[in-house]
Write a protein that binds this DNA or RNA. Sequence first.
DNA 1: AGTTTGACAGTAT
DNA 2: GATACTGCCAAAC
Length: 125
Amino acid sequence: MGGDDSHSWTFRQRVAVVVARIPLGQVTTYGRIATVLGAPRSARMIGWAMSNLENGPDLPAHRVVNRVGYLSGAHAFGVPAIMRDLLLDEGVPFQSEWVVALEACVWDPADDPELDDAFRIGLER
DNA sequence: AGTTTGACAGTAT
DNA sequence: GATACTGCCAAAC
């Protein structure tokens, strides 16, 4: 192992790895992402990281909502309706106009063992 | 080097 | 259940 820069991945890069693995038609929360990153009390960092991350077309940032299912990041898409439309297009059920039915579509990143493997690769870098 | 800011979450009232 | 307050910590200023 290298040891000189073992933790070369920045916080926002790790966030991107998790977001990229959110299944289509499902969503996850900032808190879940923070927990799988080993910082359960740092959910705010996730939102900060995503707003500063260069969102690529392959990064489903629209699948991240807050703990009650509210589309708290909708404004980052320019027009809030864009995020909502993307989720509706994937078949994500809504509880109200801007709140998804979490119980029916929430995805826990900690439930994906392959995600941990992805971090192992990153740490090896 | 200190201050401010966030696409949040948990707890208390 | 809704509101208010606190904790959290990386990055930009």
